Amino acid sequence: MKQVFSILFIAFLSINSFAQTTWNADPAHSQVTFEITHLTIADIKGNFNKSEGSIAASKEDFSDAQYQIFIDVPSKETGVENEG
């Protein structure tokens, strides 16, 4: 019985150490913003209303992290009329 327990324990540690964890951006607490300079005299700030993002990593130090972000460009908003 002790040997079976040891094998199961090692198997659990192996699975756990290679498990990948994924964190998704919470839309209510995340934003994608930008700032551009127009004709070197005015700074225009804006944001994208629709975006998604995630980070996946299996190492604690994030050395193998993979980042993904998707931005819906037509959802941009600057507050400037005729932003086209």
Rank of each mutant, 00 (worst) to 15 (best):
K2I: 10
Q3R: 02
F5V: 15
I7F: 12
I7D: 14
L8K: 13
L8F: 04
I10P: 05
A11Q: 06
A11E: 03
F12N: 14
I15T: 09
A19Y: 14
A19D: 06
T22D: 03
A25P: 00
A25H: 01
A25D: 03
A28K: 11
H29W: 05
H29Q: 13
V32F: 12
T33C: 12
F34Q: 07
I36Y: 03
T37N: 09
T37G: 11
T37P: 03
T37K: 06
L39R: 09
T40D: 13
I41F: 07
I41D: 13
I41E: 11
A42H: 01
A42M: 12
D43W: 05
I44V: 12
I44T: 10
G46N: 01
G46Y: 00
G46P: 12
N47C: 09
F48Y: 11
N49V: 08
K50L: 07
K50M: 12
K50R: 02
S51L: 14
G53S: 12
G53L: 07
S54R: 03
S54T: 01
I55Q: 03
I55R: 06
A56G: 15
A57F: 04
A57E: 02
S58W: 01
D64S: 04
A65N: 05
S75P: 10
K76M: 13
E77F: 10
T78W: 00
V80Y: 10
N82G: 11
E83P: 04
G84M: 11
